[in-house]
Design a protein around this nucleic acid. Structure first.
Lengths: 328, 328
DNA sequence: TTGTAGGCGTTATCAA
DNA sequence: TTGATAACGCCTACAA
């Protein structure tokens, strides 16, 4: 160890670990050992402290690209989130996932996935994540690109039993003596697949219980008039619809609001059940709650397993719970 | 140019640009020129095509960390998003910002900011972004860490004129002959600062118009009972409160739902005005709409200016618009 | 028109 | 216990 330097924080560029080594009068390797707490390399307490102090003094901050290049792997987990999946539940899942990953030295970074904003190969030149989690489906070609880049992939929505959600909705309404059900189907094309699965669950349940086919109306949550149109259509039917399964709570709440605007009351004049248990729906909406914590744990388990190249063993479970309130 | 190799995609590791060079029988430099479309380096069409084909065949995908290390800069713009800012408007702003950045070769990656999940210096070892955009405030120490890392910073919420939002709410209600206003204040501590600014705007407007101080009630959107408590408190006041400014649409909608559950109707029995213009509120809620497009453009301009080291010159404007519906 | 060589910051290996 | 050195993948000034 030679004469420590007394350099102040470098003005122009950020301080590298080499700067710290120079200023401390030790080798770059020693600095690396100290800064990364490498086990088995017993460094003298004095040297250790000196390096730490110098790093602090120079304002050294590790540089991710260099680390990743050297280690051959990134610690970034990229969440590709489709527009429709951006919402209360998905945010909670991502939040939890982030927490779980933080304990293992990874960061979760979310990126909006558009399907065509930017080719995957280009994206990879900008971020090269260790693993990708998708919230909502990817285009097939993009999945292929991810495979080509030898990047691990977890499909979070694959764990969501949408058909079962529909079954729970219909099953509950039937248990409350409703026989003629309606289904509020979202118009958003991005969400169509999921919506179909949920509707299929409702249909299957109706069939098994000997109820007639649900009466489907499309609703666009961006256009209130479609909500009124749906309500009017159900009211106009001969065999009266007495209960509605809404694709999600947002639509369910809009139906309730539409009723209120017509001087009617949800739960009394028309039963409505939603999905998600979002905060605005908690005033009175009966719903199928998606347990974000449970879901996130399952996703986290899959992700960490794949990152560690071990088999995933999360317990089966559907993270669903019926919450009964006044709307149905 | 020598004998082209006929290697298939490398099994174990991903193909590097050196692999492409080897397989094409050209130098690594040539590969780089072709792949990056470097101007001024006229490469023969044949060579060009050969390299392109080989890259495709080997499944070469550029490796971001190596690029960043070499170029000395990352193309990642990191959005640090506070929990409370995750919502309809912020999501739209980020969406637009992403679009604007994509045109300039940057990616927007969002990361939940917690205040204490992970020290900034550690985060920097995982991602080293070119610039940070904050949605919601950062701890002072974290802002310092960002400065220390010589990373550029744009505070998106700094562009949001919260006081003016409150003024617009109160001004509109006063124009509808309401004289005794209430304010639904959120309990979430993360949101407190913004809420204070909005409330201050309401207060100032009341003062200037000669109205009494607004009657403040706290509401927690996660707990419906607080909504009922607030409604009861306003109803119990001697000088009756006839109109409520809600901190945001979510709370506003909950107030409307609370009224409906009590057999009352928003707009008729109590006026309510929100902020944001979220979809569920569009059935009937009068609100101060935040123009996500305009806001995002302003943020994008700031971000791109800073990235390009040029002064930002976005036009002033407050991105606010009053939307009158039935609730007030 | 293409090739050579050097370096970005970090860390693993090996030598001292 | 610590230090020198090479290597990760990519880019580019310069040479040929």
């Amino acid at each position: 160890m030679t004469e420590p330097d007394t350099a102040a924080p470098i003005p122009g560029r950020r301080a590298t670990s080499a700067d710290v080594a120079r200023a401390s009068g030790v080798s770059r390797a020693t600095v690396s050992y100290v800064l990364n707490d490498v086990p088995g390399k017993s460094i003298s307490a004095a040297t250790r402290q000196l390096v730490l102090d110098t790093a602090q003094r120079l304002g050294h901050i590790p540089y991710a690209p260099a680390r990743s290049l050297r280690s051959g792997r990134s610690n970034i987990v990229l969440a590709l989130v489709r527009d429709f999946a951006i919402g209360y539940v998905a945010n909670n899942v991502l939040r939890r996932l982030d927490l779980a990953l933080a304990e293992h030295g990874y960061v979760l970074l979310a990126h909006r996935y558009d399907g065509d904003l930017r080719p995957m190969t280009e994206l990879w030149g900008l971020v090269s994540p260790a693993l990708v989690v998708t919230m909502g489906g990817l285009a097939l070609s993009d999945e292929e690109a991810i495979a080509l880049a030898q990047t691990k992939l977890v499909r979070a929505h694959g764990l969501m039993p949408n058909e079962r959600i529909g079954r729970m909705q219909a099953g509950y309404l039937a248990s409350r003596e409703h026989t003629r059900l309606g289904y509020a189907f979202p118009t958003d094309p991005a969400i169509e697949l999921i919506a179909r699965e949920r509707l299929e669950g409702v249909r299957a349940q109706c069939r098994e219980l000997g109820l007639p086919e649900p009466s489907i109306q499309e609703v666009d949550s961006a256009r209130p008039e479609t909500v009124y149109a749906a309500l009017d259509a159900w009211a106009a039917e001969g065999a009266r619809v007495t209960a509605i399964c809404a694709h999600n709570d947002e639509i369910a709440v809009m139906l309730a609001e539409g009723l209120a605007a017509r001087g009617l009351q949800v739960g009394r004049d028309l039963a409505v059940i939603g999905v998600d248990d979002i905060p605005v729906a908690r005033m009175s909406m009966t719903t199928v709650r998606i347990d974000a914590v449970g879901w996130a744990q399952a996703v986290a388990e899959d992700v960490l397993a794949l990152l560690g190249d071990r088999p995933s063993t999360h317990a089966p479970g559907d993270f669903l719970e019926l919450i009964v309130r006044d709307s149905a």
